[in-house]
Design a protein around this nucleic acid. Sequence first.
DNA 1: TTGTAGGCGTTATCAC
DNA 2: GTGATAACGCCTACAA
Lengths: 352, 352
Amino acid sequence: MARLSSGDRPTVKDVAAVAGVSATTVSRVLAGNYPVAATTRGRVMRAVKQLDYVANAQARALVGGGPRTVAFIIRDLVGPLFAYIGQGVEQQTTAEGRLCLVCTHNGDPDRELELIELMREQQAEAVVLVGGGVRSAANLERMTQLANALDRTGSRLVLCGRPPIGPDVPSTVVEYDNEGGAFAATNYLISLGHRQIAIIGVGEPEHTTTKARFGGYTRAHKAHGLKVAKQRVLPGAYERESGYQQTKGLLARGVPFTAIFAITDVVASGVLFALHEAGLRVPEDVSVIGYDDIPLAADLTPGLSTVHLPHEELGRTAIRLALHRDEYALDQHVVLGTHLVVRGSTGPVPHK
Amino acid sequence: MARLSSGDRPTVKDVAAVAGVSATTVSRVLAGNYPVAATTRGRVMRAVKQLDYVANAQARALVGGGPRTVAFIIRDLVGPLFAYIGQGVEQQTTAEGRLCLVCTHNGDPDRELELIELMREQQAEAVVLVGGGVRSAANLERMTQLANALDRTGSRLVLCGRPPIGPDVPSTVVEYDNEGGAFAATNYLISLGHRQIAIIGVGEPEHTTTKARFGGYTRAHKAHGLKVAKQRVLPGAYERESGYQQTKGLLARGVPFTAIFAITDVVASGVLFALHEAGLRVPEDVSVIGYDDIPLAADLTPGLSTVHLPHEELGRTAIRLALHRDEYALDQHVVLGTHLVVRGSTGPVPHK
DNA sequence: TTGTAGGCGTTATCAC
DNA sequence: GTGATAACGCCTACAA
């Protein structure tokens, strides 16, 4: 009874004392995996209620019990893209009976590495890295070390929406076909007759996502015997503002173009705004295509043509593969398909 | 050396053995809070590197060390509103040197209770409940018990964007002025001359958020001596689709209205779409106002007038208050202000 | 400056 | 069916 007013939690011992049994018996009743006399069980349960006993997950974990945890490392929680992947990760994690630890690194690759270390201490069963990033050689090397370290202890590095680190690095990789989607988008614009297609958002050429999407854009041009004009390849971050500014700059410099491929939908929303401001009609004067198919895309006016990514599926698949890698002979590198979604922002090239 | 190939993690003992010192010394070197000879420290560090030793956070937690964790319980991760609050929670949690455990309940109040139990086992230092919810008497009672239980063990129930459970329930509450914002929004429409203002999204009248916003709408009417017409109070969930369907229904039934107050911006986006489809101009024919000021609001055409909520600040404040409640004499119930954001979707009442 | 002993809360093992 | 005991990995007295 003294326990009830005390500031610290009651333990199995306290319950045992109240119920007049041993700690072992309490543990057995709670676990329910061992025969215990009905009357004893009743006494124990009553004591549990009375003391409002709650097991200590940390102590449990130490002896190998309790739910395991999956770490989820992401840039931030606000991007609609990240949110959907996170949703998939969290849902599957919960469905698998695991807990979900979330950390953000705000785009800092070093912080990302630190967080992996931290999650290693936390005994995470899998460490999920979401979204593309800039990769230096040093970063890749450290990442390789960490992947191996995790693997050695039965954990797993999971790359979600980002290409593999290297050929022999133990990791689970689930990405989408960024290059293919960009190819399809550019190809579609070309098939509509566009020959002067600007691309906006190539600010960090070494960013894995940027690289792949720009690669698809380039390949589509090559496939049609078209040259990529430098004046139509514009930098900028993955932000609305950069879409807006770059479009204004394009117009100000008088660079000719009939279509704009924005590297993300968010960038595209800024592009649309700048065009609208300049009195240009979409798609009559300029066609615009985005990438990601975030919810916003359908709500823009006109509806934004874009490349759809299976966000939630990405997260779900990643967790599923990582947690069941020993059960089935699952391929630990999956590339999910992307597809073009045509809405109102794209149309045939305008007549001169 | 044998350890290096083994599947399980090296412990302080292994490091001690390699370094030729005792486990205690290793612990001291790692903690850095106790004098250790420089040479010894060197040997230990080398052994740590060699074995790639990583501390076991669970064992640490058991003896009172290591980072504490804050639990973050939310409906889902995809809503833009939740995302921003989550961002605030996560950032502040990290800034305070804590880890962030995330769980979703998909709107199921029972699941929410279960999760609180689970987080209690996890020894969470604070359990943050985000967003409004439906509250039955039984739910409130159980919630009260849990709040007390958490309080008794030095933890804390934190209500974020939701009203207090009861007068004497130990908890930290940070909410925004839903009623006041709804009053301001409705009042603004009335001041523009509108007298037939429909409200869409009152589907769950007992939902705490719905209740407060509908309350503000009602109070504004009363303040101007206007009556709330039942035919203009429409149900519907917090979804785009429901905004769309309810608006169509309103038009089909021929209910007169000159303005629509959508209970959330997401609902408003559906409203705008339905009006557009029906050939009605906004704001010339109908004014529309939303609530939340999610990023989408600014991107809609026309820009959506709405009530701004300080999302991130909400999350940050909640964590700050909860974690420092003993240090300062902080008020554990804060109501953050909301304010009207006027964009293009509202205008004077059309002439007959 | 370093080492030894004990304990955190739980469960598994082995005896009764 | 039930209970003592050891062990998980770490840290903090207390000794030396």
